[in-house]
């Protein structure tokens, strides 16, 4: 028996919007720790890891660790029917081949339930090593969205270089080249407008902009995004989900032949 009640239902709506373009179907893992997911895109270039910790739910009942396979496009369709202020409850009975999403309006005058078919999905989890990254950048998520969008009108790939002077995003294409440099700036009114660069070692890696643009679908979840990079490792693009968890995207770099 699984019953998860999330007062801020809009978070789950935003999570689905953030991952459904990258991954079509996935197993959600439910345990006493929380509601989580790890899945790769179909070409195995990117990986998304979601965590919604049990403490973040108003009610969290998960009698045993289970995986429930869902088509994310269909799940997103159903969650779109929930109002932004609605409370969302996810329910699944043991051995059932369906999951129920219940939406309650804040004043309790409208209650909907949507039953969705589950899927059998073969998936294997990858071990993500706990690494101290050589460089990490915290910046406004809107700024990162803007940079990825702007650069993808010029080129297909971006080189992200972190030095003590700042972080440089470089692309080039048929029409020319573009460089955007962001410097550390922590002297701002609001912490979410700050850009903070931590660098143990300078790092420079190249990535496909198509994927980074897809990751920015998570922008509504968090004002701040963190980019973590080390030489010859996938970049981690992390959006925190309040204090209840995160969506992390891992993207394999482009490698010189």
């Amino acid at each position: 028996m699984l019953e998860l009640r999330l007062v801020q239902g809009s978070l789950l709506k935003k999570v689905l919007e953030a991952i459904k373009d990258l991954v079509n179907e996935a197993n959600f893992d439910c345990s006493s720790t929380g509601f989580s997911l790890q899945a790769m895109d179909s070409s195995h270039v990117a990986l998304v890891a979601l965590m919604l910790r049990s403490e973040g739910f108003e009610h969290y009942r998960c009698d045993r660790t289970i995986s429930i396979g869902m088509n994310l496009t269909n799940m997103a369709k159903m969650l779109k029917c929930a109002g932004n202020d609605d409370i969302i409850t996810i329910k699944a009975d043991d051995g059932s081949d369906t999951v129920t999403f219940m939406f309650e309006s804040p004043s309790q005058d409208k209650i909907s339930d949507f039953e969705m078919k589950l899927m059998e999905i073969d998936s294997e989890h990858l071990g993500i090593p706990d690494t101290e990254y050589q460089s990490s950048i915290k910046m406004p998520s809107q700024e990162f969205l803007r940079i990825c969008k702007d650069l993808s009108s010029i080129g297909d790939t971006v080189m992200i270089s972190v030095t003590k002077d700042g972080v440089k995003f470089t692309t080039s294409g048929d029409i020319g080249t573009a460089n955007i440099v962001c410097r550390q700036n922590t002297s701002v009114d609001e912490p979410e407008n700050a850009t903070e660069i931590k660098m143990q070692e300078p790092v420079s890696l190249t990535f496909a902009l198509r994927y980074l643009n897809s990751f920015t679908k998570a922008t509504p979840l968090a004002n701040i995004v963190t980019l973590s990079m080390s030489a010859d490792l996938p970049i981690v693009v992390e959006y925190k989900i309040g204090d209840m968890g995160y969506v992390r995207y891992y993207l394999a770099p482009k490698i010189e032949e």
Partner: peptide, 14 residues
């Protein structure tokens, strides 16, 4: 140009 790496070449199956 540079080749796209695969995530499975960095992270191994559990």
């Amino acid at each position: 140009g540079p080749q796209q790496g695969s995530i499975t070449s960095f992270f191994k199956k559990k």
